[in-house]
């Protein structure tokens, strides 16, 4: 008589690799906020990818009206400029569209680097413990002691202002949060019976980490990655606004700085600085909405 507890389950089909990866991401699809966040991202990703098609002008080109006047400080709708132009005669709508490209580029690369560096350090420190852990965690303490914005400004300025240097500077600091959290998670995973079982079965440390531990911390990596997206975009905006940004690439922060320097507020040119501000808020809060969804998955008790 076979045991009853396992009722007639037909052979579970092995899902294909894409479906499995998708499941490993554990996208928080049943949280309305998270879904809204994902939708916002989707819109901006589409805009960023098709920026060349969507934008009406080159965002850095100095434009002229059909009457061959400098197209400076035009209001939205005037002379077919959807959202008006800047004081230098550049098209605001096109800047906004291209701005999403650099925002996402920065956000996603920073998030990727933060999640990757943080996860690897957290895994190694948590799994091997002892002096490895001690050294890596003291490094994390140092990273915690670094004032974030000044460090990024100094490093970005020192290395030459470019968005990649901003990303590197952020990754060098922000890995600390991810590493700390992943390490503590690994510390508990390491004591799980099946991890010990893998050791007794003769599996190497690398194999144990990759097979038994890493899949369990993947959602946490994504959680911290999605937090980092918001941080990175905000930081880039701050740096550009302060004038330490890459002068050759259009970002929302650059637009704000440009507007500020041109005294847009005095000119009542709300069409100039409000849209990039809203875009920053949308993308950053979308990141936090997704974060919230991940948190509900990872720590279901928090939401009660």
């Amino acid at each position: 008589m076979p045991e009853i507890a396992a009722p007639a389950i037909t052979k579970p089909r092995r899902p294909n690799i894409i479906a499995r990866m998708f499941r490993a991401l554990r996208l928080p699809m049943n949280d309305p906020f998270a879904v809204a966040g994902l939708l916002i991202y989707l819109v901006f990703v589409v805009v960023a990818v098709f920026a060349d098609q969507i934008a009406t002008h080159d965002p850095t080109e100095i434009l002229y009206t059909p009457a061959y006047d400098l197209a400076a400080d035009l209001r939205p709708g005037q002379d077919d400029f959807l959202m008006g132009t800047t004081s230098l005669g550049r098209d605001i709508f096109s800047q906004l569209v291209y701005g999403s490209r650099s925002a996402l580029l920065i956000g996603i690369t920073a998030a990727f680097m933060v999640a990757l560096i943080g996860s690897v350090i957290g895994l190694v420190a948590g799994y091997f413990g002892r002096w490895v852990d001690a050294i890596l965690m003291r490094l994390a303490d140092i990273a915690f002691g670094i004032p974030f914005l000044p460090f990024v400004i100094v490093l970005a300025a020192f290395l030459r202002p470019s968005i990649w240097n901003v990303v590197i500077a952020m990754a060098l600091v922000l890995w600390r949060d991810t590493a700390r959290v992943i390490r503590s998670q690994v510390l508990t995973l390491r004591t799980r019976g099946y991890v010990e079982a893998a050791r007794v079965a003769g599996s190497s440390d690398v194999k144990i980490i990759l097979r038994h531990i890493a899949p369990n911390i993947l959602p946490l990596s994504f959680l911290y990655g999605s937090i980092a997206i918001g941080w990175a975009i905000l930081t880039e905006a701050s740096i550009s606004f302060l004038g330490f940004g890459d002068p050759n690439s259009i970002s929302w922060g650059y637009m704000l700085q440009d507007a500020f320097a041109s005294q847009a507020l005095a000119k009542q040119a709300f069409y100039w600085f409000v849209p990039p501000g809203i875009c920053i808020i949308l993308v950053v809060s979308a990141g936090f909405f997704i974060t919230r969804g991940y948190e509900n998955i990872l720590f279901p008790k928090l939401s009660r």
Binding site: P12, R192, G193, Y194, E196, A197, A198, R199, V200, A201, G202, R211, H212, P215
Partner: peptide
């Protein structure tokens, strides 16, 4: 040595990775 000396775990619910068949 690992192939010669083995351990049977206390908690079967914890000793097998839930993601593994």
């Amino acid at each position: 040595f690992r192939s010669k000396a083995q351990l049977i775990f206390q908690n079967p619910f914890d000793a097998i990775n839930p993601r593994f068949t």
